[in-house]
Computed example of a mutant assay.
Amino acid sequence: MIKVLIVEDDPMVAQLNKRYVQSVEGFDVLGITSNGDEALGFCKKTEVDLIILDIYMPKTDGISFLKELRKRFMMIDVILVTASRECQNIDAVLKLGAVDYLMKPFGYERLKKSLESYAGRYKLFHDRGMVEQEDLDIITKKYRENNDGGMIKGLHKKTLERIRGLMEGNPGTYFSSEDIARKTALSKVTVRKYLEYLESIGEVKLEVEYGDIGRPSHLYKYFETTC
């Protein structure tokens, strides 16, 4: 069982993340702390394999906490789950050894995918004495990039880039699946499938509009970054 600590100052988000994590087979949440100071104290007393960590917190923030962990040679794996889109923050935590970075708001499937990927990595390094190159390729970003970026079966890279390019080129604009289908000459069913994928990995934001009559409208906006 992979032992998890959640470090999040928003109680509702922390409980939601706990339910998400515990729904994935092989993971057990041992505790929740609201800042880096509490998390450091927890890690001193309790063996933890993985930390689900926010950046923006009172007292000791996520980056300072991660630096302190490494200073103390506490090589606990970390997945960042945060609203921060600042390149400097992302670069810092990746250099400090974060195994993944999820931008809020993200879909359950994106977190599940991250945890399942981590479980494969954990099993590889804990259950075997030696590994082969092929084993390492499976858990590296280079492998995922050479295999259509780890996309789910049935999606194609060129179609994804077509939809992504349209949305990325119109920052701040909300699109319906009908809008994108019309502009890309794709079917609404196809577009909806790709939008759901982009939403699940945290690249687009979903807004649901409820009108007086008929079904609610699903609108999608591409996340802008400061890079």
Rank of each mutant, 00 (worst) to 15 (best):
L69T: 07
I63K: 03
M130F: 13
S64W: 15
E86Y: 07
I76Q: 04
A92C: 13
G129L: 14
G129H: 09
Q88G: 05
K71W: 01
P58H: 10
L136W: 04
K113I: 13
F106H: 05
V81F: 13
L69W: 01
Y143F: 14
K123F: 09
D91P: 04
N146W: 14
I79C: 05
G129N: 07
F106C: 00
S84H: 05
S84A: 07
Q88M: 05
E134D: 11
Y143C: 11
K112N: 15
Y108L: 15
L102V: 05
L96P: 12
I79L: 05
G150Y: 03
D91E: 10
A92K: 11
M74L: 10
V131E: 12
E86C: 06
D100V: 02
D77Y: 08
N147S: 06
I139G: 04
K141S: 15
G107H: 03
R85N: 07
Q133Y: 09
Y143A: 08
K141C: 12
G97L: 11
K59N: 14
Q88N: 11
E68C: 01
D100M: 00
L136Q: 06
K141G: 11
T82I: 05
P105N: 03
C87R: 14
Y101R: 02
K104H: 02
V131P: 12
E132S: 14
L102A: 01
E109G: 09
K112R: 09
Y101V: 02
L102C: 00
P105Y: 03
Y122K: 15
L111F: 06
K113H: 15
L111D: 06
V93K: 00
G97I: 04
V78S: 00
L115M: 14
N146Y: 11
E132L: 12
K141T: 15
F125L: 11
G97E: 02
L136N: 01
Y101S: 00
I63W: 04
R110Y: 02
L96H: 08
K104S: 01
D100C: 05
N146K: 12
E145A: 15
F73K: 08
L80W: 01
R85H: 03
G120S: 15
R121F: 10
D137F: 08
A98I: 09
K123H: 14
M57C: 10
R85Y: 05
E109W: 06
F106L: 02
I90S: 00
P58C: 13
M103G: 03
M57W: 14
D148Q: 03
D77L: 04
T82Y: 06
K67S: 05
E116R: 06
K95P: 06
L136K: 02
I90K: 01
Y122E: 03
